[in-house]
Design a protein around this nucleic acid. Structure first.
Lengths: 233, 233
DNA sequence: TAGAGTTATTCTTATATAATAGTCAATCTA
DNA sequence: TAGATTGACTATTATATAAGAATAACTCTA
């Protein structure tokens, strides 16, 4: 093979995690054991593990070991949730309402989602911050990837935790496209705002470990007491 | 020192680049030469260089060498410019107008900018895309960091290129905070839009190699034919 | 100008030592 | 004696050095 060894190791480990062979929160074999297992040097195993840590797939700490990253309600919510107060503090939203539907997918949804599913779940929710409406989210996920999702009511605050724990589907990256917009009904009334209030509309494509697009999400955000924070490199 | 060797190497190299000892586009010494120079092993020098590449400060290619990253008008503009068409293509804006002023800084500007400058340049510009107004930018930079900036008219499309080439000031990271807003005059008329058009307002703090905040920028963005694109990890 | 050979550079692997964290039993103290 | 503290031991990752392999650019020659 022409692909670097450490990349092969990375792919092997990602596959094992995706297969549920290494479960969230469990400890991976040590660098030496992994190296022996995969017939590479400890340094190569190390390079792979460091890169996996960089991707947020595992967490390492000296003297303890390497662990598959667990999505807790706290870290999961914040991982992709970029709203901050003017003072730079995390915004911790609360869930006001949740609504789940099953429906046929649109042509565009099929073209974007993994496996072009015919049916999808549509999860709509309103979040608040300090008892003020903050944002309205609509998540679209393939029904065949998450069977029985609608029976799991009430759905948790952070969907991705559920995806990982119940379906071994680990969301690790996402792309968002933001546009400026004006509130219209019915979202305006859900957010208890006037029609015409300026908002940021964020359209997200979320990808799992295997780079599959497993969720489309549209978030309509009020930016009265918070702003969408981004680090550019 | 208790700090790891390779971090000391990183800091040394960053300092040298900031001092103009290694100029943009120039080749750094080889891993071996650098190691000999700094009395470390080649592997340690390597680790430092890899990290610098990760930060975007240098570019490496096998068989050629390691080079200080050059901000060209093309890559500089795009590095922090996240607007994309609905098809996902880069938006390449054109400069419609530029306006440079010297003025006293506000209290807030002094508190944010490096060295709390009393006087600042204020560079205002309007960009277009496909002959349509796209965004309005206002950059605030300390006058003492960039002496003579106002005499360099016409200013180039990308300010950061000028900062690097003329002032050895390399902008490598930035933080932006986005809010939703409605256009008001005078920006509305500059963008040839009605008052009340929804926009994204992006407030940026740009940092240089030494982590100093060297620019405050406010961009007012129309999102008719493009959207603000973000990769979340 | 085509191609072989040379050189410079990064990439990969190997090995050794240091630092860190956890475990458990022995010891001290009230 | 109960509970806390200490210290020895083990497992693990972090750091550092070194050396060989692979790659790309360059140079010389026919």
């Amino acid at each position: 093979m022409t692909e670097p060894l450490y990349k092969q190791v990375i792919n092997t480990l990602i596959q094992r995690i995706a297969d549920g062979e290494y479960l969230p929160g469990s400890m991976l074999p040590s660098e030496f054991d992994l190296a022996a297992d995969l017939n590479v040097s400890q340094g190569t195993a190390r390079k792979a593990l460091v890169e996996l840590e960089l991707k947020g797939i595992v967490q390492r700490s000296q003297g303890k070991g390497t662990f598959v990253t667990v999505r807790t309600p706290e870290n999961s919510l914040f991982h992709f949730f970029r709203l901050r107060t003017p003072q730079g503090q995390q915004v911790t939203p609360e869930l006001l309402s949740t609504d789940v539907k099953i429906r046929a997918s649109s042509k565009e949804e099929r073209s974007l989602l993994f496996n072009a599913p015919k049916k999808v779940f549509e999860v709509s929710r309103v979040r608040t911050f300090k008892n003020q409406p903050l944002c309205h989210e609509t998540s679209i996920v393939p029904i065949d990837l998450f069977p029985g999702l609608h029976e799991r009511c009430p759905l948790p605050n952070a969907l991705y935790v559920l995806f990982q724990q119940a379906y071994s589907c680990v969301v690790i990256s996402a792309e968002e496209n933001l546009t400026a917009g004006l509130l219209e009904d019915p979202v305006a009334s859900l957010l208890q705002q006037k029609v015409g209030t300026p908002v940021i509309v964020a359209r997200r494509q979320a990808r799992d470990l295997l780079e599959r697009v497993v969720e489309l999400r549209t978030t309509t955000i009020l930016t009265h007491g918070s702003s969408y924070n981004i680090d550019l490199r």
